[in-house]
Amino acid sequence: PPQTPIRAAMTSIQQLRGDLTSSGDQPSTHLATYFKNCTVDPTQDVMKRLETLGEAFSQRFGQAVGPHCVTLGRQRFNLGVKLYYKIMEAMLKSEEKRLSVQNFSKLLNDSTFHTSLLACALEVVMATYGESSFKTGGYNQGSGDAAERNMCFPWILDVVNLAAFDFYKVIESFIKADPTLSKDIVKHLETCENLIMERIAWRTGSPLFELLRQEHEGGTAEQVETPAS
């Protein structure tokens, strides 16, 4: 049958759900082993963070779509958690191969890493369901319904309280770690990446400025330009 936007969306959703059918909402045995191999076991912090962010996400989803949709938000979050675990495991396997180490204690106890990875997984889920789609002509300026406008990227960053610059760090590794991501989703993440690089990372309060300052003080960087430049 001919491809239509609806059929394409349904196929993407079925593919995402299908890919995650075998993924549990708990860490797999392999991932749990990575946790146990850490100098400081991150398991409890990971669970606690998911509990807190799950509540925040569901509530904000409900506010954006409607109070009756808090449960729907919880379903989206749970799907995001499955993807988060799946990608984390793939990333760690790749790092184990590259670095020949099995103790990732520092990375796995880094709250920013977990929040960035989860935010990226949730962005993929919402983009698949068309809830974070960019309109032609610029982001957050479309004529779609309120829910679409409200939940467009960088909405997720506000929900999980994450700096855009930290979200940027995870995008490429995320795409590398999941070769099954559809072209449309990769394109969506690339659009997020470009928005961060061109605008969001340069907003007041971005951690990028502190990094640039440190580089400058180290004497290795050229004169740092002002944000306006």
Partner: peptide
């Protein structure tokens, strides 16, 4: 299968990006 341009070098992974190497 997609046109994404991978910019990271082989020696760069998620550990380096979060300063955890």
């Amino acid at each position: 299968s997609h046109d994404y341009h991978f910019g990271l070098e082989d020696h760069e992974g998620i550990s380096e990006l979060f300063d955890c190497d």
